[in-house]
Simulated assay, not measured.
Amino acid sequence: MRNDIPPHRAGEPIRAGVPEHGRIPRYYAVKTELLVLIEEIGEGACLPAERELAERYGVSRVTLRQAVGELVLEGRLLRRQGSRTVVAPPKLLQPLALVSYTEGIRTQGLEPGRTVISAEVLSADPQLAADLGVEPGGEVIYLERVLLAGGERVGLESSYLPRHRFPRLLEDFDADGSLYAFLQRELGVVFGEAEERIETVLATPREALLIGTNPATPMILLHRVSWEPDGTPIERVRSLFRGDRFSFVTRLRQ
């Protein structure tokens, strides 16, 4: 097992995460070795057995498990039930733009899908009422859906819309489809702008169960409020994505 500082390569974080005092934690040194192995064996390949890897790198199984565990949380490895740990596919890239989840997933060659958890009418609390331009206690449509990509559960989306604007939405909209597309094509809604806030969280026990993920897996939480060009509110959306399966991309201009 090498204990020297890994050389810095162009494009990597400065010093590749090594503390300034230069002493590399053993699990981190193993992790860098595993990253090289992952690149060599490729997506879907099984890692060698735990004992073999521990012997190869000259560390204890506890140290090896810590390195593997971090790579699982980061989405570089997957633990398959009843089988060994395998190299994960690349993360899904979702654009931070006024496009639907459906469009973003299809551009990557996967079929998007949704499983409906709830579709109902609720009373708006003061903040939701302000976001959607309704009176506090006014009626809003609430849709909660598990997001799928190629049949895999990858997120959970909660959408709120003012009922007075879309009185027949629950009757006319196929909740398995794209809400964004329905609003545009069937109701003539024009998305003018949106404000989006992004943070990292851990899923609640209920959310983890719905998404089918480990509660310790980091999640990416997006809050979005959308308006038409004249400032009329359209929807407020809370989207929770698996941090091990998603990354987000945008292009910034001056």
Rank of each mutant, 00 (worst) to 15 (best):
I198N: 01
R2W: 08
L143G: 05
E12Q: 12
V189S: 09
G150E: 04
L35Q: 15
G17Q: 05
T32I: 15
L210W: 13
L187W: 15
V249N: 00
L110W: 02
I24T: 04
R61Y: 01
G133L: 11
A175N: 10
R168G: 00
A67S: 07
F182K: 05
A119S: 12
R84A: 08
R61D: 09
P167N: 14
R80I: 14
E193R: 05
P48N: 07
L37A: 11
R168P: 00
E195N: 07
L222W: 05
E111A: 12
L170C: 09
L93H: 11
P126I: 09
H21P: 00
R56H: 06
L148C: 03
L71C: 02
T115F: 06
L93E: 11
A29E: 09
D172C: 12
T102R: 10
T115R: 15
G137H: 10
H164R: 15
R251C: 00
R9F: 11
L93A: 13
Q66K: 14
L34N: 05
I234D: 08
P90L: 05
A88Q: 01
H21F: 10
E195D: 14
T107Y: 00
L169V: 11
S83T: 13
R236Y: 14
G44L: 04
Q108V: 00
R80F: 02
V116T: 15
L179G: 01
A175D: 08
R206Y: 14
T115G: 01
G243S: 07
E20F: 10
G22C: 02
V190Y: 09
F191Q: 10
A54K: 03
E235D: 15
V86Q: 02
P167L: 15
L37K: 11
V36T: 14
R242V: 09
R56L: 12
Y160A: 07
I105K: 01
R253E: 12
P167D: 12
L93W: 02
P90C: 06
R76D: 03
A16D: 13
F246L: 09
F182P: 00
F248M: 03
R168T: 13
C46P: 12
F241I: 07
Y160I: 06
D125V: 06
R253M: 01
R145A: 12
G42D: 07
A10K: 03
S158P: 01
G155D: 09
P19K: 14
F246S: 04
